[in-house]
Amino acid sequence: MNNLLLPIASLIGAGLVILGLMFYRRSQHATGSGFGHFLRRNGVFVSSYLILSLLGWIFFMIILPQLYMVDFSFSHNLPPSKIGGPEDVYTTQNYEYLLFGSPGSEDAFNWLHLKVFLRTILAAVVVTIIDLALCYPVAYYMAQSASSGKLRMMALCLLLPFWVNEILRAFAFRILFGSGGVFNNVLMGMGLIDQPVDFIRADVGLYAGLSYAYLLLMIFPLYNAIESLDHSQIEAAKDLGCPWWRVHFEVVMPFAKPGIASGCTMVFMLSCGALAAPQILGGPSSLWFTQIIYQWFNTGGNWPLGAAYALVLLVVCIIFVMAVMRLFKVSFGEIIK
């Protein structure tokens, strides 16, 4: 089945090398800025080290594994003995499986997996919105109001909990929201409820855990964006008659849009791809799409199917993010800033 993969991989590798050589050739003529300047400033040895390590990273860590995944996703799930044999041909059956289910099933579509897929995307959107709502005020306070001492204190308080292992944190949330957990005990102690609420089944624990896990990825882009806003613009907006909430919608948020977009993108992508938190905090009836992928790779032993599912998730997430960015008129370049 690797009959196409190797030529494609070597073609891309060769392409990268040729691209590098072209830049090098051009740099010898170039006098001003850009690549030639980079080469002269760092010397041939350091420059080639930097470029080769970067290209090597992109090729071996990003392109090659993804190519393998693509290759897998279009293959049959064959025992090792048959790999390379006459049955090892490309197929779209794995993608068909996600859409239509197994050939013998009664339903027209594979509703079980498609529903999980849509619910995962929707839940990731909700997690992103929760994080944005939580982080915006904090980031605003840190960037525009806090004294430097308070700012350091807050950054520390935000960072320290993330030294705790992710799995441990997820279990801690499970204990907090469990039927005998702190929240239920407090609510029952206050007499607000007489039966423990099943927070886990209601996915409260899942949303809390996921939102918490990606808090920093939202706060820091927001902080960076808001911090560069001249405070007198906020005052000018107030002076011209804005009530406080309108200052945010008219002045701060438009200015911080690239930061908001980059934070939302990261939180959304990582939430879609999260595994540990849904595994530990998800209710018995809720399944995360990554859990299905994990099952195909692990217990199901069907790597091609897992690869197809993973690729669909990746591509749909990217398309979704692009579409939302388009909707809010954010360019990709702004996010990188």
């Binding site: 001249d230 007198s232 613009q233 000018a236 907006a237 804005c242 009530p243 002045v251």
Partner: peptide, 15 residues
Amino acid sequence: NERPTALVFQSLALF
């Protein structure tokens, strides 16, 4: 925002 005044800032603070 409630006063009949308007301020021209030293940094201008144009949006």
